[in-house]
Design a protein around this nucleic acid. Sequence first.
DNA 1: CTTACCTCCTGCCCGC
DNA 2: TGCGGGCAGGAGGTAA
Length: 276
Amino acid sequence: MPELPEVETVIRTLEHQLHYPIIMDCKVLWNNIVATPNVDEFIAQIKGRQITGYRRHGKYLLFDLGDMEWVCHLRMEGKFYIQPAQEPCDKHTHVIFTLQDGRELRYHDTRKFGKMYLYRKQEDYRQYPCFLHIGMDAFDEQLQADDLYKRLHSKQTTLKAVLLDQSILAGIGNIYADEICFALGLHPETKISKLRKKDFEQLLYETRRILQGAIQSGGTTIRSYTSSLGVDGRFQLKLKVHALKGEPCSVCHTEIKKITVATRGTYYCPTCQKKR
DNA sequence: CTTACCTCCTGCCCGC
DNA sequence: TGCGGGCAGGAGGTAA
């Protein structure tokens, strides 16, 4: 599941590999990938446009097309391949963009959960409907611990649910949510109302430290990219708790436990992470 | 307003 | 061997 660091790696890799191509043609093989506008309109509008810029917000990829903007969300398993047009397509390829240099940009998604949006360009991309309920990016400098405290201190919800809630802070998914809880030394079911202003400072600090570390690990993906592997932004990163059920904690050697929090599989160390 | 549950999809794992 | 059932999981939608 691509989270902020993986999406950052994907967008940088695409920029590095594609530069600024013109999209000559587009084929949509699974209609539900295109969220807006309808498929015919999406194809008609994207054809002939040039990608002139690449950026990211939370887990969303944004492609500047001049007077339009193409937005993608990879959800669980979405990835891009850049391949010669004559190379056969995998059965999970659902959208194909033909470029003018003989290559194709192919969107591949085993579970078909990903979404694409095409909007008339706005000066502030946050006005696009897909960002209506999306909060500030985790690295946004305007994001203040004070504001998080004011907004969350009276809520009944849990720390992990807050980390996963894209309307509060955009970019964190299930893997990094567990890693951030571990770094904070807090049980993922800790009520958010137990956190003080200072804890939110630490929450932002650890969130950014962990995401930044992951982006740096992903940096190697950009240079070592091969078209046969696709661009999904994944890389080898040493996790401390996520998916490590039954393994000894790297700090105290207690067995890592797995529970369900906010309907998500959640890993934590019962010794290092206490509820408040 | 807030929380709970359902939907989209497929691969994989399990039991028989 | 193969088949059916159950499950995971972002985010939007709907029901309560």
